[in-house]
């Protein structure tokens, strides 16, 4: 369970952004997580609720966007939304694909009360 250590990084980024904008508090934090990021979003949220106490983000709402798993085929150039453990092209069944969505682990945006 490494969600708590990720939260440390997350909180550090949020606090830095709040200070940079001289915000009084953080209203919400939006993170984007893909199924192939290796992180359980619910655990990340509960870890964040522990770690935010006593910081400028104490009242912040945690908003999660999940990213679909999408591959692009190098053979036929199609894009398909697929299951996380089956990254083949849905059109031609090739496994020569690139993942273009689904491994995100990103702080997307922060809403600040200024």
């Amino acid at each position: 369970m490494h969600e708590l250590s990720l939260c440390d990084d997350l909180l550090g980024q949020v606090v830095a952004i709040a200070a940079q904008h001289k915000a009084e508090s953080v209203e919400s934090i939006t993170v984007k997580i893909g199924a192939l990021a290796g992180v359980e979003p619910m655990l990340l949220e509960s870890a964040f609720s522990l770690i935010k106490v006593g910081t400028v983000a104490e009242q912040a709402q945690f908003i999660m966007q999940t990213a679909p798993v999408i591959v692009r085929c190098r053979k036929c150039d199609s894009q398909s939304e697929v299951a996380a453990n089956y990254l083949l092209c849905s059109a031609c069944q090739s496994n020569d694909t690139t993942l273009i969505s689904g491994d995100e682990l990103i702080l997307a945006s922060v809403a600040l009360c200024v």
């Binding site: 980024q13 915000a23 945006s109 809403a111 600040l112 200024v114």
Partner: peptide
């Protein structure tokens, strides 16, 4: 997910990986 404009609230787009320190 649409941004609802609200008085006194600014939304800052970040797009930074949560593993950036690591």
């Amino acid at each position: 997910m649409a941004e609802k404009p609200k008085k006194g609230v600014t939304t800052v787009s970040v797009l930074q990986n949560l593993l950036s320190q690591n």
